[in-house]
Design a protein around this nucleic acid. Structure first.
Length: 550
RNA sequence: GGCGAGUUGGUGAAGCGGCUUAACACACUGCCCUUUCACGGCAGCAUUCACGGAUUCGAAUUCCGUACUCGUCACCA
């Protein structure tokens, strides 16, 4: 085909395009950003809710853009109608909001490089395809699905590479007359790339995390525009990321095999190629099998899971940060006063292989998160969570606000705060002794020992010896005195050395009190609990114990 | 099957030719501290880096081969 024929073909196929390539090039000029600023994007298709894997991706996007003073934008990739799900776009915004991963530009907040939804960019794609046809880099292909399937079969039998390329790309050199005739006949067609590649040649490519990779050149005539005129992912990627001036394409490593294609696309289109950052998939071990986290099988793959079970978003982000950069965890441990925002993430500390999703570790991170929160913060955050997931408990929390804050504050001061809960949902059970009604209702169900305690002795102590106004040390000395006056050793060591000369030791007395007023063998600092409860409620609970255990 | 990547303990991993008889963290176990629990401290948990060969005075680290795992090969992204 001559150059004029190519032009004629282009006009024939796309007669009604309003603009030309240069119009768009001018409309979307280079971004005015400081040196080194990264422009990243998250490009989900609206298939429903965000998957942990994509959340991880968008987290990377936002982190790298933010720390380089660049731009992070959201582009909805909805070129495939079949994949779209009702409210899918809403779901994406919702989950991103929940994690406080907020794009600088999107269909919702706007931006100069929109539209940020691919279904609204059809004209743009077609304009560029038309240009490509005019230059002889693309052509209409009339092959039917059946024809393609039979080629595939043949290729499988011959054990040759599968796809439309070389001799299999039968429509690649159709004459203008033939094309015209088939269009007149009403034959449907797609637009394919006329690949200039040679699979015997090698290209070398440098990925930001995987490093150097060698590939054969692409020689596949992949489709650019589908029968319905919408672009394939590959083509849309090239056009959009060029026009939106993405500097770093951060995506899952299931895309690395498309690199030769993408490199070629940028070349053919005359675009400057962005950097690629292919991150490993978030995986899960099931028995001996390691697989990608699955939305269907794994509850933790759904972003909404964390809200449901009550793991704080911040904790999840901290966990994402630890899998994003292998050196983050140690840094964070050694810089207790710093936040995630203070850390500088790098590509070379990203995992190359898959990252196993470790719920144990997440739990631990979450525990530490709670430990560092003040009692007041724990109260407020738990209340918010309870309002949503356990309204009855929310009511209890509100009715007992002052007490609850005090209980949540026990052993929270000092450099090594108490660690006990990892989820909002655990608070109710963990602090069941804090609320009178809950305590009564529970009875002594949480007590798993079989001892009976000397109620009169404890009553004597509470009534005649307990002073709630002193500090912890004074109190403890007091209870030690009480112990030795009643035949108990003042310290467990004394008891251990001479078990026969004592009835027991202070610990036993503390244990008795603990069981009577909290209903369990394990609790935070006893004296702090007694102080919050006050003498009347302590006596009340001992009476309750008496009744229950009689 | 072609192409590409990966393979270090129960788990996540550090490691980039000698400082590694393999960091750190999670989990687990034991001890210590201690009124219980938690916290914290100490110790244990890979004599060895999938396997085989090569290069080197020296390899978890470089090269080659084998095995296994994963990804991809759509008018899906």
């Amino acid at each position: 085909m001559t150059d004029t024929e190519k032009k004629e073909l282009a006009d024939l196929l796309f007669p009604n395009l309003e603009h030309t390539v240069s119009y768009y090039e001018e409309k979307y000029p280079a971004r005015d950003l400081p040196e080194g600023a990264m422009v990243t994007r998250f490009g989900p298709s609206p298939t429903g809710f965000v998957h942990m894997g994509s959340l991880f991706g968008s987290f990377c996007d936002s982190v790298f853009a933010r720390q380089s003073k660049g731009v992070f934008f959201l582009r909805i990739e909805d070129t495939d109608q079949k994949r779209s799900v009702e409210n899918g776009v809403e779901g994406i915004y919702h989950d991103l909001d929940a994690f406080d991963i907020i794009p600088d530009e999107s269909e919702r907040v706007g931006g100069k490089y929109g539209p940020y939804i691919q279904s609204a960019r059809t004209e743009i794609y077609q304009t560029y395809v038309k240009d490509l046809i005019g230059k002889g880099y693309a052509y209409p292909c009339f092959m039917t699905e059946e024809e393609i399937a039979s080629i595939r079969e043949e290729q499988e039998i011959n054990k040759t590479k599968i796809g439309i390329y070389g001799m299999y790309a039968v429509d690649r050199d159709l004459s203008l007359e033939e094309i015209k005739a088939r269009i007149e006949k009403g034959d449907e067609y797609v637009i394919r790339l006329k690949s200039p590649g040679d699979s015997k040649k090698e290209i070398e490519f440098v990925d930001c995390v995987k490093g150097k990779i060698k590939f054969p050149e692409n020689d596949m005539d992949i489709v650019l525009l589908k029968k319905d005129g919408t672009p394939t992912y590959h083509f849309a990627h090239a056009i959009d990321d060029h026009l939106m001036h993405t500097t770093h394409v951060i995506r899952g490593d299931e895309w690395v095999s498309s690199i030769p294609l993408h490199v070629q696309l940028f070349e053919v289109l005359g675009f400057q190629r962005p950097e690629y950052v292919h991150h490993a998939a978030v995986t899960k071990k099931e028995g001996d099998i390691i697989r990608k986290l699955s939305k269907r099988k794994d509850p933790e793959a759904k972003v909404s899971y964390y809200d449901e079970v009550g793991i704080p978003i911040e904790a999840v982000k901290l966990y994402l940060a630890t899998i994003l950069n292998s050196n983050f965890e140690e840094w964070y441990l050694n810089n207790g006063d710093k936040t995630l925002e203070d850390f500088t993430f790098t590509f070379d500390k990203m995992a190359i292989g898959g990252t196993l999703f470790d719920l144990d570790k997440l739990n631990n991170i979450s525990k530490t998160y709670f430990a560092h929160k003040s009692g007041k913060d724990v109260y407020e955050e738990t209340l918010v969570w309870a309002h949503k997931h356990d309204p009855e408990y929310a009511k209890l929390l509100e009715e007992n606000k002052e007490d609850m804050i005090s209980f949540f504050s026990i052993e929270k001061d000092g450099p090594r705060p108490r660690k006990d809960i990892s989820k909002y949902s655990e608070v109710k059970e963990e602090f069941s002794y804090a609320i009178d009604s809950q305590f009564k209702e529970e009875g002594y169900a949480k007590y798993d020992g079989d001892k009976t305690y000397d109620v009169d002795l404890i009553l004597d102590y509470i009534n005649n010896h307990l002073d709630l106004e002193v500090d912890n040390e004074t109190w403890f000395n007091g209870i030690k005195d009480f112990a030795s006056n009643h035949g108990y050793a003042a310290s467990p060591k004394d008891y251990k050395n001479n078990p026969d000369s004592y009835k027991g030791h202070v610990g036993d007395i503390c244990e008795a009190i603990r069981v009577m007023i909290t209903g369990r063998l394990k609790s935070p600092d006893l004296f702090s609990i007694m102080k919050i409860l006050g003498k009347d409620r302590i006596l009340d609970r001992i009476e309750f114990y008496k009744e229950k255990k009689r």
